[in-house]
Design a protein around this nucleic acid. Structure first.
Ligand code: ZN
Ligand code: ZN
Ligand code: ZN
Ligand code: ZN
Lengths: 135, 135
DNA sequence: TAATATTTGCAAATGAGTTGCAAAAATACG
DNA sequence: CGTATTTTTGCAACTCATTTGCAAATATTA
């Protein structure tokens, strides 16, 4: 789905900033922070606009929030390319040497049983370690 | 191990603030943020001292850092009571209604296989959902 | 105890994220 | 199309957790 269609489908005005932000998200292979999105937007955009847009898209369930270490990041819920969508609660890996982030979409984490009466809504699973370049 | 011994074993001066902070950690059943620790210290202690102490103890591997949502929290690596130690990569649960945090030390999460060449150092596994009081 | 080294409190700085508000842009409508 | 109405934007100022410089206070050493 192209940015214009996503915005229209969610009753949001189609603006240049929003289209640029969505295009940036579509190109990303890992979740991005507000700051990282600001940096990637060639055509300048105020950070308040970026954060407001991310919040709105998150509330409309277009974006997923992913917490990496203690940074808040965002990813499209449905991506066009593998590793681009974040529909499933997949595992993330952050390298403690180079800081690079990886979406481990192929890695299966076994299921677990919560205590009686607890209901899972979302997994926030992050593995910290050394990536294949840094080990 | 008592606070004095922990400090001595790590070549740190034994001060009233540090002893108070370690005692607070020993009493905690869940990881605490710098702010929460400040609030629990009856005998006032400047926040800069609290954060400096937490960092030092983390670097000495006395404390473990646990990220809950996007808050940085700390817990003793080895506790005296069940649920008090954080040696194992146990699962944490945060209730999306009441905000309460739980250490699910009994809950086993299945193992997983990282891609070739990746080495795990630490799991940061958090489940968001409804606790048994709020569901 | 005096000398030296470490820790502390304070106040000021940082940095991500948020907010109020008036100007600018988008949408609705005749 | 224009024009009226609604929404979005940039800016500057703010918040809030955490960090920092520094001189004074405290702990360790000898
Ligand atoms: Zn690496
Ligand atoms: Zn991912
Ligand atoms: Zn609850
Ligand atoms: Zn725990």
């Amino acid at each position: 789905m192209d940015p214009g269609a996503i915005l229209a489908a969610n009753g949001m005005s189609i603006t240049r900033n929003r289209v640029n932000i969505l295009n940036t998200m579509k190109l990303a292979t890992v979740p991005l922070s507000g700051k990282e999105i600001c940096q990637r937007l060639r055509e300048g955009c105020d950070k308040s606009t970026v954060y407001r847009t991310l919040n709105t898209l998150y509330n409309k369930e277009v974006l997923q929030r992913v917490i990496i270490d203690h940074e808040v990041k965002y990813a499209l819920r449905s991506g066009d390319r593998p590793g681009n969508g974040h529909d499933r609660d997949h595992l993330h890996f952050k390298c403690s040497s180079c800081g690079k982030l990886f979406c481990l979409t192929e890695t299966e984490v076994g299921d677990y049983q919560l205590p009686e009466g607890f209901i899972k809504e979302e997994n926030q699973f992050l593995v910290i370690g050394k990536c294949n370049k840094c080990r």
